[in-house]
Design a protein around this nucleic acid. Structure first.
Lengths: 315, 315
DNA sequence: CCTTGACTTGAAATGCATTTCATAAATTAG
DNA sequence: CTAATTTATGAAATGCATTTCAAGTCAAGG
């Protein structure tokens, strides 16, 4: 491989001058600039990015820790991140964690080892106390709110959105409302349950089913809910795929939506548009974009992204 | 930041010895090894990855060029790639191209600049002739077949799969078969049309609708097909989301699937499982895994991944 | 007792480009 | 016509870790 020294030699100048040409520095005589460019062209020279990153101490690369890489919610976040990174000529490295504490630490270690300028944590397994020391080595931005000043946040107020959604259902006259969630132990699930209590009080047995991710899960959940003795009149699904499954089950039972069963989903996913499902849009793409912007600006701000309820024909 | 020199000084040894400890080299006296490890621990030292990559000339990072980053098919490929990379301690950088020739070249340039050990091209805008010269600088693997020996391939025989799917429908007695595709100008669309001709001959006007991507598109396409004077008795959809939309439209018209309308989808996506749709599974996840393996092995083999038709209840 | 091979260690070279420092020539300002 | 800028360029230092080379110690084999 030819390097900057070869170019300098062949063009009859010093490496400094070649470097100046490479970086569009103002003060280079035209004839030398020309001959350097010509040699670069002839030799098809490309600078070694590792050497540049080493000396500059930055890589224009962002690491994105995400637990699952085939999950629509995280895909939306990643999508937003990629959009913004592309705009700003940053690269994005995907760091799948599967919620493993060790993997997460390994990735944070790579921030310290100067592989990334910053890291976006979409969801995490470790405590903030464990993560914070790494914020000395680059910008860390979280997609969930945390008060720690060392960590930037691009987030939405999940709890409020849950309250709003439940309140909407209550306003429409529903009193028997059930819901689904993903992981039982997640913070989000806890908040969902709290919001339920706040609006409807006691949670009847069987009114909450967890580990729902796809259309099938929603189909099964709806079946379970509707076989209960006191069947719910409305369901809040943790995603439009799941809501779509519920809708299909309701239809299969000759039920009318929303007359016999109201359904509201989440994340404003394509399925929901097709089926006319109302949804709580958490604007994950925007959250991803904002998170990426924060890393690029090296900012540790806390930016709250507004959610919105998209009312279509299912509630 | 502390570097290897600091560690050497504090531990009272040379940098070579520290490097040996870092790389688990056999011949280091126990006491020195201990004291080096202790200093590393005390100083919370982490080696600079850019320096290592520079000198070693490899990064254990793979670049993945993909046109769209919110498309289920490319997500499946990426998913497979990430799985395999994770297993082998490789990192994956996502390179969104939007089919821009310039962006693609920019990414290939990064292979030359030693940022990646290899690149996986899931789909491309440039000619192979333009791409091939870059195979000197790392392993390039394509997810589409190409005879060029410089390029590794992890692919499936798309044309055969189209033939098989159409033949299946023909065997079930269908003579009026329509289909949908994504981009009109893609190679895949061309193959689909060729396969149609091969099995059914002349393509009746209105029997092919392009630019179908999501459930909604499928819903609309089914509507269009079924309003034709000579309505088709079977549809081959370019994806299960699309097929799902068709299924829902058929149901909305009180049609029985497959009795009144047979539907077969593609890619074996979650929606299809829920709706019991038959599908042509191109095993994109496996293709992604294999592509990643090839890069890791620095192999330029051509590996054909078998597709399979999953028969459920819609044909 | 000498040779040979297994250990052990450090100095220096290496990979590559950027940046600072020093110097010199050519302009411009006063 | 000096003094102060602006323009132009190269040598050398810098960022950091790996690897080769040379050399030394020590124990086992003959």
């Amino acid at each position: 491989m030819t390097n900057i020294k070869d170019i300098a030699r062949l063009a009859g100048v010093s490496v400094s001058t070649v470097s100046r040409v490479l970086n569009n520095y103002k003060y280079v005589a035209n004839d030398k600039r020309e001959s350097v460019l010509q040699v670069i062209e002839e030799m098809k020279y490309t600078p070694n990015k590792n050497a540049i990153d080493l000396i500059r101490g930055e890589t224009r690369t962002i690491g994105v820790i995400l637990p699952y890489n085939n999950n629509p919610a995280f895909d939306q976040l990643l999508n937003g991140i990629l959009n913004k990174a592309l705009e700003n000529d940053f690269l994005v490295t995907v760091l799948p964690s599967k919620y493993s504490k060790e993997k997460e630490m390994e990735y944070l270690q790579k921030l310290k080892s100067k592989l990334f300028d910053g890291i976006i944590i979409t969801s995490r397994a470790n405590d903030w106390e464990t993560i914070i020391p790494y914020s000395d080595f680059g910008t860390i931005v979280s997609c969930e709110y945390t008060p720690h000043p060392e960590i930037g946040c691009s987030y939405m107020d999940r709890y409020s959105s849950f309250l709003d959604a439940f309140q909407l259902l209550k306003n429409k006259g529903h009193r028997a409302v059930s819901f689904t969630t993903a992981r039982l132990e997640s913070k989000s699930t806890k908040q969902m349950i709290d919001a339920y209590h706040e609006i409807f009080g006691e949670l009847p047995p069987g009114y909450h089913i967890s580990d729902c991710h796809c259309l099938e899960d929603g189909y099964g959940a709806a079946k379970q809910f509707l076989e209960l003795h006191e069947r719910p009149t409305a369901i809040y699904a943790n995603g439009d795929e799941v809501a779509g499954g519920m809708y299909l089950y309701a239809k299969s039972q000759q039920m009318k939506v929303p007359a016999d069963l109201a359904i509201i989903g989440q994340e404003n996913q394509p399925v929901g548009i097709g089926l006319g499902l109302s949804t709580v849009d958490h604007q994950l793409t925007k959250i991803g974009e904002q998170a990426c912007s924060l890393v690029i600006k090296k900012s540790r701000e806390k930016v709250k992204i507004p959610y919105r309820i998209v009312e279509r024909d299912s509630v």
